[in-house]
Design a protein around this nucleic acid. Structure first.
Lengths: 190, 190
DNA sequence: GTCTATAGGGGGATAGAC
DNA sequence: GTCTATCCCCCTATAGAC
């Protein structure tokens, strides 16, 4: 049971949590309906198909990320503080709650999810990479990050690491995830 | 349609491929049956429940990995060659075919798969980590690998990276995966 | 916006014939 | 070992009343 001020938004919240928890093929309208305290059909009123619902979750997330990184609270940070902010999202909002990131969840099931969703996953993944790439490049220029090669490749590596480490945390526990975070810093910081 | 010399083995092969392709919740007995050219019930004869089938795939994989690493062809390699061997598994057998690793596939769906399967995933993940940790420690002692911190943590980071990068390859293409492999080497080799 | 009712399909699984 | 037949459940989705 969940407090309802705005059903449509609450449905998105529940769907997002379920996606991070059980994956697209692992959750159902019934899961959302029972938690929300309504019947199945009420969900279909707001989001006719499961694909619609999944896409809405992804679009909201992309919008949220865009707002975050363009907000002065993040935009004006040093590269090192930006990295900390980013790593902290993965630690406190995901690993410590047994959640994984939406991108990883849906890429693991990529070949068994609707095409429209696949596109959203691609878009979000690219957007995360762009931001991280720029942050890494800025940090190297400021001599706080140290790495060989291209910022784009280092960004792809880092994001892959985080994505995989969240999944590892599920089977082996959050302490292993924290160890990976520390190792990332050892590898990157001067 | 698939050639049948030994149904039970062929079923395992198909199930393994499907797990890497669509995930546990994304494939069905019907997928296997139709590819094998038999009816649904024939699969249940060999593996009564889907959980049984999943566990059998995992146990065979664990056994295979154990044989590999204890075989002289791998056991006697230098640490650097061992790493190349390992990375090549991920590149040629997975990324270039749109497959992901069993561990990543099932950890992404961890909260929506049977408990017996969860245990197998944990075991395999630990076994991979142990081998990689030893290889990294040996390589650092031989001064071919360079990294700060504990081999156990570096192993967890590396495996996470590979797991995540395979998933990324699905959405963004295998070239991105190859770039991550190169970055791993840049980060690790002297 | 939410309900009841229901359609229609696919899933996992079992019984018993061959 | 594989078949046909069947069960039962859950799923996504829709129609129409309230």
């Amino acid at each position: 049971m969940v407090r309802i001020e705005n059903s449509k938004r609450t449905i998105l919240n529940l769907a997002e949590a379920l996606l991070q928890d059980k994956g697209f093929n692992g959750f159902s309208y019934a899961n959302i309906a029972s938690e929300l305290g309504v019947k199945n059909a009420a969900i279909h009123y707001h989001y006719p198909s499961k694909e619609d619902l999944g896409i809405a979750v992804m679009q909201r997330y992309r919008e949220r990320f865009k707002l975050w990184i363009n907000n002065a609270r993040v935009k004006d940070l040093t590269p090192e503080a930006k990295l900390d902010w980013f790593l902290n999202i993965y630690t406190s909002m995901r690993a410590d709650q047994g959640k994984i990131c939406l991108v990883g969840s849906m890429e693991a099931e990529f070949n068994s999810i609707p095409e429209g969703l696949q596109n959203e996953v691609q878009n979000l993944h690219k957007e995360l990479l762009v931001w991280l790439q720029i942050t890494l490049a800025d940090g190297r220029e400021a001599r706080v990050f140290v790495f060989k090669g291209e910022p784009a490749d280092k960004a792809a590596l880092l994001l892959s690491t985080l994505q995989g480490a969240l999944q590892m945390a599920r089977a082996l526990g959050p302490r292993k995830f924290h160890a990976v975070i520390e190792q990332i810093k050892l590898d990157l910081l001067k």
